[in-house]
């Protein structure tokens, strides 16, 4: 798995790519929580995610809950089909704010 962190307006975007499994989900978790600890609104771009397992999903849940506690905005972008089926399995597809692109998210924020 690779990840990249960038800034776009109000948001910090954590871009995950490749297989997010137990071998790297701790890295993904840290990357997401670090942004939230700095009180940044955070979006996780998952368009490059080819596989995600329950430990990866757990990292997203932690991000979601931390954001909620700190009243920060959080959400997912460009969730691939492979990742979406796992989110559905975890009944989280309706819990996380999910948008196809950053623009759609910004439009929704207005």
């Amino acid at each position: 798995m690779d990840y990249r962190v960038s800034k776009s307006g109000d948001y910090t975007i954590v871009e995950l790519a490749g297989d997010v499994d137990l071998s790297c989900s701790p890295d993904a978790r840290k990357a997401i929580l670090r942004c939230l600890e700095r009180s940044e609104h955070t979006l996780v771009d998952m368009s490059g995610v080819t596989y995600i397992d329950s430990s990866g999903v757990a990292s997203l849940v932690e991000g979601y809950q931390t954001a909620k506690k700190k009243s920060l905005r959080f959400g997912l972008l460009g969730v691939s089909e492979a990742a979406m089926s796992v989110l559905q399995l975890a009944r989280l597809d309706k819990v996380f704010p999910i948008h196809a692109t950053l623009q759609q998210r910004l439009d929704a924020d207005v």
């Binding site: 999903v57 757990a58 989280l92």
Partner: peptide, 18 residues
């Protein structure tokens, strides 16, 4: 309970569901 949103404990649910 899957309605209870928290990290962890999803694996067994996945297996039973799939």
């Amino acid at each position: 309970n899957i309605e209870d949103i928290r990290p962890g404990g999803l694996g067994v649910h996945f297996i039973r569901e799939l």
